[in-house]
Design a protein around this nucleic acid. Sequence first.
DNA 1: AGCGCATAGTTAAGCGTTTAACGGAGCTTG
DNA 2: CAAGCTCCGTTAAACGCTTAACTATGCGCT
Lengths: 346, 346
Amino acid sequence: MANLQDVAKRAGVSIATVSKVISNTPYVAEATRQKVLDAIQELGYRPNLAARALSSGKTHIVAVVFPYVYDALFKDPLVLAILEGVESVLNAHKYNLLLSTPRLSEDGIDESYFNLLESGYVDGLIAIDSVPLASVAQAAQARKLPTVVIGYHEAPMSVRCDDFQGGALLMEHLLGLGHRQIGVISVPKSMNLAVNQRLRGMAQVCTEHGVDFEALPIVEGDFSNRGGAQAAEHLLSQHPQLSALVCVNDRMALGAIQRLQQLGLRIPEDVSVVGYDNLAQSEFSGPPLTTINQHAVTLGQSAAEMLFLALAGQQPAPRVLAPTLVVRQSTAQARPHLAIELTRKE
Amino acid sequence: MANLQDVAKRAGVSIATVSKVISNTPYVAEATRQKVLDAIQELGYRPNLAARALSSGKTHIVAVVFPYVYDALFKDPLVLAILEGVESVLNAHKYNLLLSTPRLSEDGIDESYFNLLESGYVDGLIAIDSVPLASVAQAAQARKLPTVVIGYHEAPMSVRCDDFQGGALLMEHLLGLGHRQIGVISVPKSMNLAVNQRLRGMAQVCTEHGVDFEALPIVEGDFSNRGGAQAAEHLLSQHPQLSALVCVNDRMALGAIQRLQQLGLRIPEDVSVVGYDNLAQSEFSGPPLTTINQHAVTLGQSAAEMLFLALAGQQPAPRVLAPTLVVRQSTAQARPHLAIELTRKE
DNA sequence: AGCGCATAGTTAAGCGTTTAACGGAGCTTG
DNA sequence: CAAGCTCCGTTAAACGCTTAACTATGCGCT
């Protein structure tokens, strides 16, 4: 592979001149500039990024951090949508994307994550930071890395979709349809700060409507389809009077729907089900899912754009997106509820 | 941030000695070694990877390449599963994962991809290489980067799940259930080499059973839920006698099922539907989908393991995984078919 | 003519590592 | 006791780039 020296020799100039041509520094004669460009062409020269990084301190790499807690976070299609948004902006800026998935546990964060932070390999960092356990972003900020947080940990630069409002919208929808016997499928409080906000939003709206949110039956799942299915079965076998199910994410909602249907319940005639996320697939479930769109792609884009502003020396303001309610066919007016026999299948 | 020099000074030795301690070179006295380790501890020293990369030529970064053709390939949950497999192995080896999504078009490959290949930033590369248009892996091999191909382009190191056999398994299943009026939902031939293999496998089995595969009605989608839905509607309105639908991926199958149900058809009583991929969500659709498990996570793991073998100087043999048929509730015995009125909804 | 200034190009230091080459100290050995 | 080990540590070059500091040239002014 050709290096600057080769190019310089071929063009009959010094290394510094070549470097100036490449970096578009002024005060290079047009003729020289052409000679250099030709030499670059002929040799197929490409800069060595490691050398450039060492010398300039800029790597053109942004780390995207998805903590790995109980499971790979990026398995969630929602996270994927965020990644898609980040990728599009990074790509447009010709930056590379380094996917980091530090293992989180009670003992703290994976040691090799710190190595990465201090390696000089990354110019900036975008982190999904929703786990109460530990903040992957704080670790980065402490090391003076420009960091954008997607989530609820405190940070000078952050983006999020208002989960409180999202929860509120969802609950308003259900209450508006006349539902009062509502089951909740959530995750353990220690799992996710965003989910906790959603629950708070729901509680608030309930209070406004004279419903005691705390009294509603709640089961904790693990974000997965299977978790939702199990939770739904559990809820309806214990509380057959329920006319609606709120799930804190779409995957659990989809799992719930499928299980309830297997148990002979009709959605939404017998039970209304809502999710949260608006995954692509949620539009094509049977029935299509009523849910909250948290604009994940935009979330990712915003995060990346903020990071670039910061890298350009500016101080972008935190951004909070407004969630939107997407009403589809998994919810319907609450009917005077008939007791329903649950035919347990497993 | 502390560097080798600082550590050396603190430990009262030379830079070279510190470096030797770090790289576990023999012939360092135990006492010195301890002094150095202490100094490292006290200063919180972490190696600068850019410098290390420049000096040693090793970056400890592996690029995972998902070409971006019509759309971001990594949006597909299947690709995500592959990514999960790759990530787990990379993480175990303490390697970093750089996600590269070069834009592919008729004009060839995105220029910045070549910059990456020759940047000296990556030690090796794992590429999903299933697009006939162009091979992202060949470009890498031409530049002497250790490269593992997931897919059908020729390469010294490659992994794949036997798509021919997968297609065959799927068709055998349907024919075995007595289906003869089968519709096919595929993608344009120019889109994906793996899919083409699946179709060949199906055709072969059809021939063995005296069915003319070429004569079966076929519609081309775009891998998406929506594409599957539209294709299914199109197929059944043109060919109401169909008793089964083969889709070349799960997403289209799920979209198809949903649309057919909307049109008043029962799955599998009226129409059997099969997919390909065995996505996590396919187990939780209504009804759960009969499909082919192509062991995506294992695929990713194998690719990463092969790459590490190659980096260690070995020459791993190509690997072909055997697909497995997963029978769920979206397929049933073909019944004497009643003509079904399609109520078009859109 | 002599000064200042804009333009064009070069020299050389430095980024933080790795590593080959070297040398000294303390052994064994014939 | 000199030669030849082994063991431990140092010196210095190299990786390929960026960039501050410098030199040189030509031009317009007074």
